[in-house]
Design a binder for these strands. Structure first.
Lengths: 148, 148
DNA sequence: ATTCTTGCAAAAGATTTGCAGGATG
DNA sequence: CATCCTGCAAATCTTTTGCAAGAAT
């Protein structure tokens, strides 16, 4: 059950080299973790996943990789006030379905997002930029709550 | 220019007393900050706003109040992995419009949210619970970027 | 008066930074 | 082989918890 719902479509090595940065193990592993995860992750959770792959990679390097990726526009850092979560940049129309049971995250494309954008433009004086939709619930693989 | 876009509609004192908790200054101030803010806030930002009102309230009490409010269902704690933000509980259909310029947050009700819920139910095997929509952009009061 | 809550302080966890050695181009 | 990156460790900031004193009922 691969979780990757990300059409990654970004060659990390090319991106790094193009901008004069070096391709290193730490950066590759962090990128792999982000690509595989499919949803916003906090730095600590990214770090622990990175460690599962290669425990020799230091936490500080994870932070440095994330910061770099953000500068390159490869990941999006969501700052809800001052708490950060990170995920690979992806199209607006993809919304997040987060299963409360198993933590699995799916992406779902729907024209309702562009539609929502237009609705906002028409109904308000707000000029929308990014739209972030997150839905919690139960995925198809997790059994419905049995009556206790 | 009141920011409060929240139809609060909750009497904190009643909620507390009903459940056997005491009405204290700390709890009242934290509640006021949340009600006035209008969007997800992290604990540190809540704490600093609380301190602006009453510096004698300890940071630990802010955390304890938030935890209590969450248990009472008065606020919603959004956990994106392990980072938390808090806001007063409100109806699903209200989406967040966050101005990147001035930080102002507006709520906007739209039937597209319930519609989105139905669309998910129909198109996927995911059973949606809470839907959280956040839109960044520029509000009507902030001037469009002038060509540099 | 009773006991729930708070403030304080210390502990545990998250994030940033300086520096010397190691890997990359 | 020049220098970019990393690991380490220390510093800083966020969040949690124990305990005795202070408030709310």
């Amino acid at each position: 059950m691969a979780t990757s719902a990300y059409p990654v479509g970004v060659d990390l090595e090319v991106e790094l080299r193009t901008h004069g940065y070096r391709v290193t193990t730490a950066r590759r592993v962090v990128w792999d973790v982000l690509s595989a995860a499919g949803d916003h992750l906090t730095a600590p959770s990214i770090t622990s996943r990175v460690h599962a792959v290669d425990p020799s990679i230091n936490g500080a390097s994870v932070y440095r990789a994330l910061t770099l990726f953000a500068e390159l526009g490869l990941v999006r850092e969501s700052r809800y006030e001052d708490a950060s979560t990170w995920e690979p940049f992806h199209d607006d129309a993809a919304i997040h379905l987060v299963c409360s049971e198993c933590g699995q995250v799916m992406h779902h494309d729907t024209e309702l997002v562009p539609r929502l954008r237009r609705a906002i433009q028409v109904a308000t004086d707000f000029a929308p930029d990014e739209i972030d939709v997150r839905v919690s619930g139960r995925c198809g693989h997790c059994p419905a709550e049995s009556p206790a």
